Every structure is written in C-alpha cells, then in structure tokens.
Simulated scan of single mutants.
Amino acid sequence: MAATPLLRTDGFTVHPATHARFDDVRTMVGPKNPTSSVCWCLSHRIPAKDNRELAGPARGAYVEALTRRRTKPGVLAYDGDEVVGWAAVAPRSELPFARSTKIPYVDDQDAWSVWCIRVRPGHRGRGISHVLLVGAVAYARQQGAPVVEGYPVDNQGARVDLTMAYVGTRKLFEDAGFRLAAPTGATSAGFPRVVMRRTA
C-alpha cells in the first residue's frame, strides 16, 4: 500500500482514499455497528432522498465503490501507519451543493468542495485538520481543479460543538490560504456558514 503521499508535513502524511485504503476509510467514517444507517460521510455527497434510502451495509458498499473510481472520495491523514483523519473532497458539480439554494455559486469555474473534515478521537489538537485541508487541496490540484472551496462556520473564535465541527471553521480555512468569497444562507451549530475559496 506504500505510495508517494500527496503531502508530508509536521510528521503526518496525506494519501488519497484509494480502494487499498478502504479499511482506513471505514475506521474514519464507518459506524461502530456495520448495520447502522448513519454516517459514511454521505449526507452531502448524495441527494437527501438517496441518503435516506441507502441503509445498513449498503452504505459502506457505496463508499467502497467510490474508492474504486478514478477520482477518489477524499483523503486520509496518517501518523506513521495509523490513520488519524479524513477529509471529503470532490467536484462541486457532482454533489448536492450544485443544487443548493443556501450555498451560492461564486463564479463559473469548476470548483471542488471540501465539506467534511474529521480527526480521530485521541489525536485532536495536533493540527491534523489543517494537514487534511491542505492535503485535500493538493489532491484537487492533482486532479485538475482550478479552485477549491469550503463552507465552514464563521464562529469568530467561539467554541463549536464537536458533533458539528466537521464543517470546519473560517479560521481553519484562512490558515490554509482560503479567503472569504461569499456569505451563505446556511447555518451549523448556530453559526452562519460562509464560502471560503482558494486557487488550487
């Protein structure tokens, strides 16, 4: 499974979520109970109706199929050989965001979206979210993306509930070279969300 990483920094590496790494994807986004109809990072990847109808093990099978595609569904961060983080990244045109009435289009460029950043419990507070975001940009660039955008909360330093923190914060995106592109009509954890953008 050894391969040249997308990114190597601060003792971490970031790799695309290939099929060979599917067990690590499962570790990061799969539910503890494989029959549960939750997570797998599908709520913003597929239409809401499909997400509701995709149940139990079929959810994991769907994500496994995504890892077999030429364009992978996200990136994974590692501390040595241990997976410690996940970031979902894909062309916005392939996601429900393309039809969102709350997340505006900035322009006609073929933007890629980063919408879920997860760090494994026990590894938080080490800068892994930043590593994941930079790695996601590196992957989008490798795939030819002209720009990358995210939709984090503009929490102005206030604490964000961990269950909703997966969208990221404005500061996290600013620290990775993103700039405010537009307000949105969306909120998360009681905070307004914004469109943050950077060239890939």
Score class of each variant (00 low, 15 high):
residue 62 Y to P: 06
residue 68 R to L: 14
residue 92 R to M: 13
residue 156 Q to Y: 02
residue 26 R to A: 13
residue 197 R to F: 04
residue 63 V to N: 03
residue 187 T to V: 13
residue 187 T to W: 02
residue 199 T to S: 13
residue 145 A to P: 00
residue 16 P to G: 05
residue 144 G to N: 11
residue 101 T to C: 10
residue 170 R to T: 15
residue 12 F to P: 00
residue 113 S to Q: 09
residue 17 A to Y: 04
residue 149 E to F: 13
residue 153 V to R: 06
residue 27 T to W: 05
residue 33 N to E: 14
residue 148 V to A: 11
residue 130 H to V: 04
residue 144 G to D: 08
residue 125 G to I: 11
residue 60 G to D: 11
residue 123 H to Y: 15
residue 187 T to R: 06
residue 169 T to S: 15
residue 145 A to W: 04
residue 132 L to S: 01
residue 33 N to A: 12
residue 91 P to C: 05
residue 46 I to W: 11
residue 55 A to P: 00
residue 111 A to W: 07
residue 84 V to A: 07
residue 133 L to H: 04
residue 178 F to T: 05
residue 32 K to P: 00
residue 64 E to W: 10
residue 99 R to C: 03
residue 178 F to Y: 15
residue 52 R to E: 15
residue 167 V to C: 15
residue 7 L to R: 12
residue 118 R to V: 14
residue 120 R to N: 12
residue 4 T to M: 12
residue 118 R to T: 09
residue 139 Y to M: 03
residue 140 A to H: 01
residue 25 V to G: 01
residue 127 G to N: 06
residue 78 Y to C: 01
residue 35 T to E: 14
residue 63 V to S: 06
residue 95 L to Q: 10
residue 92 R to L: 11
residue 7 L to S: 08
residue 137 V to T: 14
residue 116 C to Y: 01
residue 122 G to E: 12
residue 67 T to L: 13
residue 22 F to C: 08
residue 136 A to K: 00
residue 83 V to K: 00
residue 92 R to G: 06
residue 4 T to G: 02
residue 169 T to F: 03
residue 192 P to R: 09
residue 137 V to R: 12
residue 76 L to N: 06
residue 83 V to L: 09
residue 149 E to K: 12
residue 8 R to A: 15
residue 180 L to E: 14
residue 163 T to G: 11
residue 53 E to W: 05
residue 53 E to I: 07
residue 73 P to I: 09
residue 180 L to H: 15
residue 2 A to N: 06
residue 126 R to T: 06
residue 176 A to E: 06
residue 8 R to K: 15
residue 89 V to F: 03
residue 96 P to H: 03
residue 181 A to S: 14
residue 198 R to L: 12
residue 60 G to C: 11
residue 70 R to Q: 12
residue 62 Y to I: 11
residue 51 N to Y: 14
residue 117 I to K: 00
residue 169 T to H: 05
residue 136 A to N: 02
residue 105 Y to R: 12
residue 18 T to K: 02
residue 123 H to Q: 10
residue 160 V to D: 07
residue 27 T to P: 05
residue 175 D to F: 02
residue 188 S to M: 14
residue 20 A to W: 05
residue 189 A to R: 03
residue 21 R to A: 10
residue 193 R to D: 00
residue 138 A to D: 08
residue 98 A to V: 09
residue 86 W to I: 03
residue 70 R to H: 07
residue 4 T to Y: 00
residue 126 R to I: 07
residue 84 V to H: 00
residue 144 G to W: 00
residue 42 L to E: 10
residue 115 W to F: 15
residue 67 T to H: 08
residue 158 A to K: 11
residue 116 C to G: 08
residue 95 L to N: 02
residue 91 P to H: 09
residue 15 H to T: 09
residue 194 V to R: 04
residue 196 M to A: 08
residue 61 A to D: 13
residue 65 A to E: 08
residue 178 F to E: 06
residue 194 V to G: 02
residue 87 A to F: 03
residue 85 G to Q: 03
residue 151 Y to E: 15
residue 3 A to V: 10
residue 163 T to R: 14
residue 22 F to I: 11
residue 125 G to N: 14
residue 15 H to D: 08
residue 191 F to V: 05
residue 5 P to S: 11
residue 114 V to E: 03
residue 114 V to N: 07
residue 156 Q to F: 04
residue 128 I to T: 07
residue 50 D to L: 14
residue 85 G to M: 03
residue 131 V to W: 01
residue 86 W to Y: 13
residue 39 C to L: 13
residue 58 A to Y: 02
residue 102 K to G: 05
residue 94 E to L: 14
residue 48 A to P: 06
residue 43 S to K: 00
residue 177 G to L: 12
